[in-house]
Amino acid sequence: MRPVGTRRAVLLAAVVALVLWAGTARPGAQGQVETLRVQGQVHLLAGAGGNVTALVGPQGVLLVDAGSQGATEPLLAALRTITPLPIHFLINTSADPDHVGGNAAISQAGRPMPGWNGAGVSGAPVFAHENVQRRMSAPGPGDPGFEAPFWPTSTFFTGKHTLHFNDEPIELLWQQAAHSDADLMIFFRRSDVISAGDIVNMESFPVIDLARGGSIQGELDALNRIIDIAIPRMNQMDGTRIIPGHGRLCNEADVVEYRDMVTVIRDRVQTLLAQGKTLEEVQASRPAYEYEPVYGAEQGAWTTRMFVEAVYRSLEGEDARSRAAR
């Protein structure tokens, strides 16, 4: 029998480390924020924590994610190099501090769109799945959470919510239990861009936040959903662009490589789990070996070992649920 208490403690420590790390303005977050025109009306602002997506048009600005708390000033300065128009909407892709830390300041820097039915809201309304609200307002043990000014102001619990802004149909697609249980992918249908949040992370293995409802199968479902939506212009070139939660801009071909990598590692861990291998034995086999130079880390908030453990625990949980159902 494995020590459940130890396992919980490790997971808790991982969450706390993640929260502390993500909430801290990292090098670059306080400094230069890089702006990149993606396509259509969509821009990428990078270097303020998690990637920030900006939809910029004649009606004003819609932002996807708000970066880290300490990075609002350079983020807004970078946005002002693109447009002087006001921020009218902010959407959170998850409750991670490097995506919601700037909520209060960004919202207050904007204002509701004229005619917007948001009684009592002075700043730009903040959209998110209700699980973001839950995670921020009633955090789990060891998670400091956020004060009320940071919370979303408009949440939903259904699989999809839509907006229309700047002549752009926008889909807010909830992806259950992927990186967490609060993930949204934002699909800008006219500009043909998906803002994927931390479902795609070009700088590391995907963060499967088990303590916040994430799962390896949900992560793969989310990646496959992106691939299902994306259409390349020709021969896997151009077409739908995907903005990851961290790192460089992608198109479908990059997400296919990422999905394949996650699938291969999942399959290996699943095989070992079926053979009755312990976590230590799985770690010793290094199931992510050839991907380590690209996505791995031995130190920091999300190491290769943490990723492998999350995959193992997630599959172990699925296995237990499956057995209980029988």
Binding site: E34, L36, L44, A46, N51, Q236, M237, R241, G247, R248, L249, C250, N251, A253, D254
Partner: peptide
């Protein structure tokens, strides 16, 4: 820069 898309 580092955030630009990589191409074939």
């Amino acid at each position: 820069g580092q955030y630009a898309e990589h191409l074939w």
